[in-house]
Design a binder for these strands. Structure first.
Lengths: 193, 193
DNA sequence: GTCTATATTTGGATAGAC
DNA sequence: GTCTATCCAAATATAGAC
């Protein structure tokens, strides 16, 4: 069994995304983590402290992701877009949960997100040499994250088949189109602008 | 002075975006709207009812936007991206506030957003004839909205000059690049894929 | 390190005067 | 149509036993 501390953070993370900041009560978190409220408050003195722990973990995970970032534009874009649409990996989970905290008004959550975004932006910029492409990449990935964050678990498409989160083949088509924006050295496309 | 009902909705909208769902208390809303808590609860029987009113207003404003949607791909994309980055217009404000409600777990808020997204997606698809471009457009605009929603008021760029929301010239460059993805009939670009 | 109380605070909602 | 006063529930936090 993983440490109680980690289990508490995991439970909080999950509840932030699924229930929002409002729904993530100390009681519910404690139950899901398999400890009592008192036990929880031994590891984190207050709810504020709990949030700080979550944000710190995002920062660690983000640094690890950036440290292992791909070294070509093609691979980077692929990694970037795929990672954005994979809510299951730990970094994605931390990212989404921190988004919720940021929107609830926590300044340090916002700062952590901004730092991460900047790191990714700079990494893509360095690889592509094109600030507009880098910004587009950032916005598309934010768009995917946003959709993932808003869509409730297992949400069905609308009656007419529309779905918010792009999956499978559509995702690959999007990546291909983004790659087509790259300068000549790129694998598959012409250029625009 | 506008009607108390509208003032209450405006105040609630603003507080949702700036303080989050948690921070938007009936007390604070009443104060900002210039009524008492009792007065507020005369217009909306419960907080739930207040949220419903907000969502209904988004749906009205969204329908109006779609009704006046541009009739060419170029104009549509421009309108779409510019509108997404203008948080001051009433539709944008309603959209952002409803996002907060959706993330707090309100199913009807999510449904209203999804309907709107679908309407926009279909409008762009019809004008461009390209589902990948339409999806990219949707994601970029979501990305912009997301950034606008997370960024606190008057937030400064990082020390190194990075800023989350693309403004001014950068926004125009992004629009131009997106337009370059359009098929031959488009104004300025070649195509990819 | 984890538990069971219990205290404190806050926010949503009601009742009834004006 | 708006206000004040009050009630009630929920959530955070504390105290202290085990």
């Amino acid at each position: 069994m993983t440490s109680a501390r980690e289990r508490i953070l995991d439970a909080y993370e999950r509840q932030l995304v699924e229930l929002g900041e409002r729904g993530s009560t100390l009681d519910a978190i404690a139950v899901e983590a398999g400890v009592s409220k008192g036990g929880l408050l031994y590891h984190f003195k207050s709810k504020d402290d709990l949030a700080s722990g979550l944000i710190a973990r995002l920062t660690e995970r983000g640094a690890a992701d950036l440290a292992g970032f791909p070294d070509t534009a093609e691979k980077a874009i692929h990694h970037f877009i795929v990672a954005a649409s994979d809510v299951d990996d730990p970094l994605g989970a931390s990212y989404l949960a921190t988004q919720v905290l940021a929107r609830a008004g926590r300044a340090d959550a916002f700062a952590a997100l901004q730092d991460l975004e900047e790191g990714w932006y700079r990494a893509i910029l360095e690889l592509t040499g094109d600030p507009v492409v880098a910004r587009l990449m950032q916005l598309v990935s934010d768009g995917i994250y946003y959709n993932a964050a808003v869509v409730p678990e297992g949400s069905p498409p609308t009656a007419s088949g529309f779905t918010l989160v792009p999956l499978g083949e559509e995702r690959e088509a999007i990546i291909a189109r983004l790659l087509s924006l790259l300068p000549p050295a790129g694998a598959s496309g012409q250029r625009g602008q």
